[in-house]
């Protein structure tokens, strides 16, 4: 079934994929303004999904030694230690969440003259966006990646042949082919967050959201989450947190809206997110036309080569 918005634009992904009466679309709203960087989500995800380790490296990136999402990292908490000067879009201080104050290395509470910290933490738990138009799923040649009835995107381990095409297709760099460790399950095939498809099927909350102590990760129906996100944004703006912004909530954006979207306190790229991601298959009709024209050119050129002089 190929409809008008099959490659781009707002759609209900489950209906588009042929489910006749699917349950409400499920997703995450991650409110990074209340994230405390505890990494409970990372741990819960690892444990629930029995994901192998992906190396134990010291990366020198604040408290982040995980680095990025990948085959064996389906939740990733980013840490950014930011001096006040860098703060984007307004002079407001962080909302007082009643969290412990920030100290400099010599033990003093870091403070400007007005008593507000001259430094802030940005922490954000990243995850597969379960895009409305998921490039990974579009380009998968085996049908291993599929759309669930919940509108999420899941790899079928027993079908993936490890072609790796989904990896460069994802505009967020989420999905990856598992490299190791040797003997671990699913080495050689693509892996990413399933939005806990098994738990959803049993009516449960995904492990990461369940484990989140601050409700930074909110799980629910995407429609409802989008409403909640708008409300939270208004509240923060009213409180003077002008730099708060939503990311991935708009069904008209480059991926047709993400099933997992965010409230951020700085530009997306500060958190390692692409500022204006687009599903590559949006341009597929044009690519197809160009390739067809090129193929015709080649054929015509070959025919021409045989015309004329006999030598």
């Amino acid at each position: 079934m190929i409809g008008k918005n099959s490659l781009f634009g707002p759609i209900d992904p489950a209906v588009e994929s042929g489910y006749s009466d699917p349950p409400a679309r499920k997703g995450f709203f991650t409110d990074t303004s209340v994230c405390i960087g505890c990494k409970a989500c990372e741990v819960a995800c690892k444990e629930w999904n029995a994901i192998p380790d992906d190396g134990f490296d010291f990366l020198g990136m604040s408290y982040d030694n995980t680095g990025a999402l990948g085959a064996s990292t389906w939740r990733h908490v980013a840490f950014i230690e930011q001096p006040a000067g860098r703060r984007d879009g307004g002079s407001s201080a962080p909302v007082d969440l009643g969290m412990p104050s920030i100290r400099t290395s010599d033990g003093d509470t870091a403070a400007e003259e007005d008593g507000k910290p001259d430094f802030r933490w940005l922490m954000s738990s990243d995850v597969c966006k379960h895009c409305t138009h998921a490039a990974c799923l579009d380009v998968c040649p085996t049908g291993s990646l599929f759309r669930t009835e919940f509108g999420t995107v899941v790899v079928q381990d027993d079908i993936c042949n490890g072609c790796g095409y989904c990896v460069p297709a994802c505009p967020y760099g989420v999905i990856e082919r598992r490299k190791g460790p040797e003997g671990a399950k699913n080495v050689g095939i693509a892996q990413k967050c399933t939005l806990c498809y098994d738990r959803l099927g049993a009516g449960m909350t995904p492990a990461c959201a369940q484990a989140c102590p601050t409700e930074s990760i909110q799980f629910g129906d995407v429609d409802e989450l989008r409403r909640r996100a708008e409300e939270r944004l208004e509240k923060l703006h009213a409180d003077g947190v002008q730099e708060a912004r939503l990311y991935g909530h708009d069904p008209n954006d480059g991926v047709g809206g993400a099933g997992a979207f965010f409230l951020l306190l700085d530009e997306p790229e500060v958190y390692g997110l692409p500022p204006d991601p687009v599903v590559t298959t949006r341009d597929l009709p044009r690519m197809f036309n160009r390739a067809t024209a090129a193929a015709v050119t080649l054929f015509a050129g070959a025919v021409l080569s045989f015309l004329g002089r006999r030598r």
Binding site: M61, G67, A68, P171, G173, E176, E269, V270, G272, P274
Partner: peptide
């Protein structure tokens, strides 16, 4: 000029 997360890549290179 641009900002990034510790200079890390965003998209992943193909595993090819």
């Amino acid at each position: 000029e641009f900002t990034s997360y510790y200079g890390r890549p965003i998209v992943k290179p193909a595993p090819w």
